[in-house]
Design a protein around this nucleic acid. Structure first.
Lengths: 115, 115
DNA sequence: CTGATGCTGAAGCATAAGCTGAAGTATCAA
DNA sequence: TTGATACTTCAGCTTATGCTTCAGCATCAG
């Protein structure tokens, strides 16, 4: 098991993304790896809370970490990030195709509404 | 207030996407508008539960609905869907840039690890 | 060894989520 | 009017989240 992990589920990925503190941590990680303390520093909460958010991020696969000495260094995993992106993109594309197939659905249901 | 709504927040969007039942409803909606009953039909839960999921989807802006007679028809809003997509894409791109800037970060930290 | 640093873990608690079932409100059909 | 249909709303329950504090436990510096 060295190069391909189980496919990351969408539930934990989107759940991880649904919190501003966690998105903040991810944004920080886009600027390079960071320690737990560094991730916690700008956030208005205890270190403990940050560690718990980190656990959510790691459970989703969005973040991986390694402990060296007493410092845990975290990095972003963009392949997992792109899983979420792909799902969204697929829905959007599918809907746009459906919209084309249906023609002007809205115009057909309500030809001259005020909205 | 007829053509541009308040910018949809990411929290409710990702939260809405974090549930398989809700994603199922969205997938159904990519094949065109549907009534509440139609959205509920394949789901292993009560109509009540589906209505509550629908409320979450509407709160996020991902879905809009209109009631005509006794039937509420729901449609997907892909502009909101693309908000989420944009955020993810931006992080991924930023990280890939950072990765380039840092050069082979991993190789530098652990030149010949077993992992 | 001693103390500071950087995390880790377990309680505990308040709020939010996800669900059910039961009762209620508008249609629409006959 | 009667009844079915299509939601809608609400009380109530269970579990999950998000947070805190406090108590550890390995580093690392001196």
């Amino acid at each position: 098991m060295l190069q391909h992990q189980p496919p990351p589920a969408l539930d934990p990925i989107f759940h991880a993304l649904a919190d501003p503190a966690r998105r903040g941590m991810l944004e920080r990680l886009t600027r390079g790896p960071a320690s737990v303390s560094q991730l916690a520093e700008p956030l208005p909460m205890s270190l403990s809370a940050v560690v718990q958010h980190l656990a959510v991020l790691e459970a989703s696969g969005l973040v991986t970490s390694r402990k060296v000495g007493r410092v845990r260094t975290c990095t972003l995993d963009t392949t997992v990030l792109s899983q979420a992106e792909k799902w969204i993109n697929a829905r959007r594309i599918a809907w746009e195709r459906a919209f084309d197939r249906l023609g002007v659905y809205l115009a057909e249901t309500k030809p001259a509404d005020e909205a």
